[in-house]
């Protein structure tokens, strides 16, 4: 490992931080231009003008916007996301359990979906344009095309109602033991897997097919390698960069895009938390969750970038 790689990686990380800062400005500005007054929202229509003025003073709403932004950012950097207006609870504490739940569900789905998608992609390439390839592509596309709530209800109907092997409601709390927790997320994780599978599989297939045109694939063929070994050993290593990119995008989706599935299975994750508080116009919570989601996206994309850099032998081993 020499300096060019380190420099490129440092560049990406720095760029990510700048991007995150820019996103925080956007989120803050965006919630500022929303109509409505926070003090009014807290105290209700019947509040006296004095009480409103007092509360505004108390919440610092009379400060200029940039000062409030700095306060807000300063607090976040110290782990303080403020308190939820609707419930008065500390946002950081509520989020930490819910983020844990969301990450657990996402991890369960990812552990199944990513290897499965890549292996299916490899198999599709091996039997390209044949029956197996078309079957894999067809099923994967079909599973993606169904809306996730439909898949969710079908799973509930088959596995929870008809066969009764898994619970239909995936409510968990801090005291739930690991195995029970795992059992609880089987159905939502399956639904998520079916949703993200096709995208990753198709991308793997396309990226490898692209590499299969290269002259070095012919070299491998003329060495007498088996078709699957050629794909695994000679094509896949050169297709890592695009595959990692699409995998990371899907992982990000698993974390920030699971609102519908969480609602269907009544799973206490970030998505449900966000939806609840959007409905209640709870601006601090929306800001906090928005920022966390942005951070997840940016981090995963940096990871994809870095993986692509490290996977490139020209950068790893300069002349």
């Amino acid at each position: 490992m020499s300096s060019p790689i380190l420099r490129l990686v440092a560049q990406r990380v720095l760029l990510g931080l700048v991007l995150l800062l820019a996103v925080s400005v956007l989120i803050f500005a965006g919630t500022q231009i929303l109509p409505g007054d926070v003090a009014q929202a807290i105290l209700g229509q019947s509040a006296t003008p004095e009480a409103l003025a007092n509360l505004r003073e108390q919440l610092g709403l009379n400060d200029p916007a940039w000062l409030r932004y700095v306060h807000w950012l300063w607090g976040i950097l110290h782990g303080d996301f403020g308190t939820a207006q609707s419930s008065g609870l500390d946002i950081a504490t509520s989020i930490s359990t819910r983020l844990k739940n969301t990450l657990f569900l996402a991890a369960c789905a990812a552990i199944v979906a990513v290897p499965l998608a890549i292996i299916l992609g490899l198999i599709a390439v091996r039997y390209r344009n044949g029956f197996v390839d078309k079957l894999i592509s067809g099923l994967a596309l079909a599973s993606t095309s169904f809306p996730e709530f439909f898949i969710g209800y079908v799973l509930i109907f088959v596995f929870a109602v008809h066969w009764q092997i898994f619970p239909s409601i995936s409510t968990v709390d801090d005291s739930t033991p690991f195995l029970e927790r795992l059992q609880a997320v089987v159905l939502p994780a399956t639904a998520l897997t079916l949703v993200v599978l096709a995208h990753m599989m198709r991308m793997t297939r396309a990226a490898i097919l692209n590499v299969m045109q290269s002259a070095y694939i012919e070299t491998a063929e003329l060495k007498g390698l088996k078709p699957f070994d050629i794909i695994r050993k000679h094509a896949f290593p050169n297709a890592i960069a695009p595959v990692v990119n699409v995998v990371m995008l899907n992982l990000a989706y698993l974390i920030v895009g699971v609102v519908v599935v969480e609602v269907i299975f009544v799973y206490p994750g970030m998505g449900q938390y966000l939806v609840d508080h959007v409905a209640k116009r709870d601006v601090p919570v929306v800001q906090a969750v928005g920022l966390i989601f942005a951070a997840v996206y940016i981090t995963l994309n940096i990871v994809a970038d870095i993986a692509a850099i490290v996977a490139n032998p020209r950068l790893r081993h300069p002349k």
Binding site: S214, A215, E218, L222, K223, G224, L225, P237
Partner: peptide
């Protein structure tokens, strides 16, 4: 049977070695 002879009884040297080597692996491995 064809795979058994390729790379064993008959080997191939391509016009552009630069394209015929896999960029992801060390020369000796190939």
């Amino acid at each position: 049977g064809v795979r058994a002879l390729r790379g064993r009884e008959v080997c191939y040297v391509a016009q552009s070695a630069a394209a015929a080597f896999n960029p992801a692996h060390k020369l000796i491995d190939q």
